[in-house]
């Protein structure tokens, strides 16, 4: 494991010790499982974001795309009365298609990732409001509720989903041609292209994968809330970028790991969970999150020197 990750583990451990001293409730198994459950959504979003950031890009649209995916699922079940499985598929596909759309614009039409995904962010959010007229819908499917709140062997199902997605992502990045190409083009796109790798295809697929992750996030929103809300996912892109950066992935691309992103998500989950256990007003969460991001990046700087 990279030294960077030990640093993160150390930081998380320190926080856990402090929180244990401050509150007897923190270190209980039930609370730690809750912490993981709370971290899962940003973890899934962070996995997709890590892929994109490794290419040197960014995807600001994931929050809106997640919202669009969740209302797609909601409408498919309540209005069109589809079965659960096709509806789930439609939700994930919505995410993947929008991600692909980003990818094509960025790699074939050479748009800048930040501007392009900013546009798509607004498009997806607009569509979400148009389809729902801004109203939320109850989704009372048994299976979905169980995914959102159920447990297997005491462990929340959402956590399993995040772990499975992490496993897939880890495998792609470390064991496949696609993953190696992502690192290579993030390091030097021109040299990679001149080595005979179709960098445009690789980039398009990367954004499609990120969109797919956003789609999964959208579904998880429906499962945990029991409803499809057009307003969900606001600020998700920032949190996903934060956990990626805290996890040590360079925003310039080419360097980073998915393991780091997972620890980044746990770190942020710990802060949120700890603050609510200590009954500190949630306004402080924002403040502390910002401090941690800057601290994590500063640490990296000092380590390099």
């Amino acid at each position: 494991m990279k030294p960077r990750n030990f640093l993160l583990i150390g930081f998380i451990a320190l926080l856990w010790i402090i929180l244990t001293v401050l509150s007897p409730h923190f270190i209980k198994i039930s609370n730690l499982l809750l912490l993981l459950q709370q971290s899962s959504i940003v973890m899934v979003a962070g996995i997709g974001m890590t892929f994109v950031i490794l290419t040197g890009g960014i995807d600001l649209s994931i929050g809106s795309v997640a919202a669009l995916s969740s209302v797609t699922l909601g409408i498919a079940i309540t209005k069109w009365e589809w079965g659960v499985l096709p509806a789930l598929l439609a939700g994930m596909l919505t995410g993947a298609v929008f991600g692909m759309f980003n990818g094509v614009l960025i790699s074939y039409f050479k748009l800048q990732p930040m501007v392009c995904t900013l546009g798509v962010m607004s498009i997806a959010r607009g569509l979400t409001y148009i389809f729902t007229s801004g109203r939320s819908m109850f989704v009372t499917d048994r299976l979905l509720i169980r995914i959102g709140n159920g447990r297997i062997g005491g462990i929340p199902i959402i956590v399993f989903i995040a772990v499975v997605l992490f496993g897939i992502g880890y495998m792609i990045l470390n064991y496949t041609y696609f993953g190696r190409s992502i690192y290579a083009l993030g390091g030097n796109e021109e040299a990679t292209r001149l080595s005979g790798i179709d960098t445009r295809k690789v980039k398009t697929l990367t954004y499609a994968f990120c969109g797919f992750c956003a789609g999964v996030v959208g579904i998880l929103y429906v499962c945990t809330l029991g409803a499809s809300e057009p307003t969900v996912g606001q600020g998700l892109e920032l949190n996903a970028t934060a956990v990626t950066a805290i996890g040590g992935t360079s925003l310039l691309g080419g360097i980073g790991s998915l393991v780091g992103t997972v620890f980044g998500a746990v770190l942020i989950g710990t802060i949120n969970n700890g603050l609510s256990i200590l009954n500190i007003v949630s306004y402080y969460q924002q403040l502390l999150l910002g401090v941690v991001i800057i601290l994590a990046v500063l640490l990296e700087r000092f380590k390099k020197k």
């Binding site: 190696r180 290579a184 040299a191 080419g254």
Partner: peptide, 12 residues
């Protein structure tokens, strides 16, 4: 610019 991924490993 056109030859190497400088941050990538020798093997890669």
């Amino acid at each position: 610019i056109e030859g190497l991924n400088l941050i990538g490993s020798v093997k890669d």
